[in-house]
Simulated scan of single mutants.
Amino acid sequence: MKITVYLTGGIACYKAVEVVRGLEKAGHKVRIVMTKNAEKFVGSVTLASLTKYPVLDDLWTKKNQASIPHVHLAQWTELAVVVPATASFIAKIANGFADEAATTTFLATSAPKLIIPAMNDQMWNNPATQRNLSKLKLDGIKIMEPAVGVLAEGYSAKGRMPELKNILLWIGKQIRRAKKLANKKIIVTAGGTLEAIDPVRFIGNRSSGKMGIAIAKAAANLGANVTLIYANITVSLPHDPLIKNVHVESTEDMLNIVEKYFVDCNALIMVAAVADWRVKRIADHKLKKNANQDTLNLSLIKTPDILKTVSKQKGKDQIIMGFAAETNELLKNASKKLQEKDADYIIANDVSQNVFGNDQDQVTILSRHNTPKKLKKMSKNEVAKYLVNIIVQEFDK
């Protein structure tokens, strides 16, 4: 797993070095973010030597001025761990501060987050600290209670950083909980299929593949083995050992590959914008534009209906989620598709409002047994996580 460890400025900071070593010994890839106060206790060179990767501690160095290192690291992260977490850092992240490298990177991170506080007992028991911890819990951030033991001040009380063994066991437990789709096989389709007219031209659509790829990543982050069947896309493919990228071009190609992998999959999420029509006869040469020719007539025939075809092969334990990209009468058309395709879910998506290639989207979820649920407008990554969690809930039934 890709884990970013945040070190903040408490005396327990030196113990965090052993946490980093323990995570690496467990096979995880670790990168480090440090506050300037943390570096007063432990040098960044120590952590860089352990991880073989530069420590992020300043957004304003010359090498960082031409890049956006906090966003890149936030996107890389699959789990964020703050150890030790000081009262000051807890207060900042609970209230959305982004005033230096650590808080900015943490705020930009959408991966699961773990907090391991360590501080004086009076600071721990302060109402402001407890309010901030409550805020973090409401945001879904997991908190490991500090231990009772001898503090830096020389007396015993609650606030001491837990022992290394207990920290690693707790992090491991949270990782296992996060892998809700471990051992599940999920197919995700993405992008727009292309139907050749001649060796040069084709019929296509505006799909970027961004949503499908976001869903593939979200499923892999929960431990699923994902087969990403992609057609024409305009964004980068994911590079993840849990994601197998399979390229296709036409709708018929996609159907053949989906059927191949559907046999033993647990869920199919059909996000791809497939072409509904193809030319009846593909020219074997480039169709030239002649001087006396003002029109070109193409005879089109239907392409295979992938969702409907595969739904007929669906087993009782398999889940199928399709997308309905519409420009008008969204719910009416999506409801019709839900019934005709015999899918478990249809995600209605109004594509008339600059959706293709955009980072944000607003969808409505339709299912057989529930009233439609319209989500608020959010990033496609957030939509992806929401939809994948629906699949998780289906498996838990």
Rank of each mutant, 00 (worst) to 15 (best):
D240T: 07
K165D: 10
G204I: 11
I257R: 02
N232L: 12
E259D: 11
N221F: 04
L228A: 00
G192R: 03
L169A: 15
L255Q: 08
K185W: 01
W277F: 15
E195W: 08
C265T: 12
N183M: 09
W170K: 08
I243V: 14
M270P: 03
S236A: 15
L194A: 09
A196L: 10
R177H: 11
A275T: 11
R177P: 00
R201V: 10
I243G: 11
P241T: 12
G223L: 11
T234I: 09
I229M: 10
A190P: 05
E252V: 04
M211K: 00
L181T: 05
K180C: 13
G209Q: 00
N245T: 14
K217N: 13
D276W: 11
P241D: 12
E259F: 03
T234Y: 10
I243T: 10
H247D: 00
P241M: 09
H239P: 00
I171P: 04
T193G: 14
K184M: 13
F262W: 07
A224C: 09
P199N: 04
N232F: 03
K286M: 03
V258I: 14
A224N: 07
A190I: 09
R281I: 14
A190Y: 03
V246S: 05
H285N: 12
W170Y: 13
K185I: 02
K165H: 09
D264R: 05
L168H: 04
E195N: 09
K165R: 10
K244A: 07
N266R: 04
R206V: 08
P241N: 13
L287M: 15
V263R: 14
K185Q: 11
S207A: 15
K185A: 03
N166T: 05
P241E: 08
K185Y: 01
L228Y: 00
I215W: 01
K179D: 13
V263F: 12
A196V: 04
N266K: 02
K180W: 01
A272M: 03
D240Y: 04
A190C: 08
E259I: 09
E195D: 12
A178Y: 06
I175P: 04
A219D: 09
L164N: 06
K179G: 02
K165M: 03
G192F: 00
K184L: 12
L169T: 12
I229L: 12
L268P: 12
P199R: 02
A190S: 15
A190L: 10
V200T: 04
H247M: 09
K210M: 07
E252G: 12
G212R: 07
G209P: 00
N166H: 14
A220H: 08
L268K: 07
I229H: 05
M270A: 15
C265Y: 05
V274S: 06
I229Y: 05
D264I: 04
L222S: 09
V248K: 01
E195M: 14
A196Q: 14
H247W: 02
N183F: 13
D264H: 14
A272Q: 01
K217M: 10
T251N: 10
T234S: 15
A272L: 05
A219E: 10
L168S: 06
G204E: 07
N245S: 14
K280M: 14
Q174S: 14
I197G: 08
T193S: 15
A283F: 12
L164D: 00
Y230C: 02
A214G: 02
P199L: 04
M211C: 03
K165N: 06
N183I: 03
V274A: 13
Q174E: 15
K260S: 09
Y261G: 04
K184T: 07
L168K: 05
N245E: 13
A216M: 06
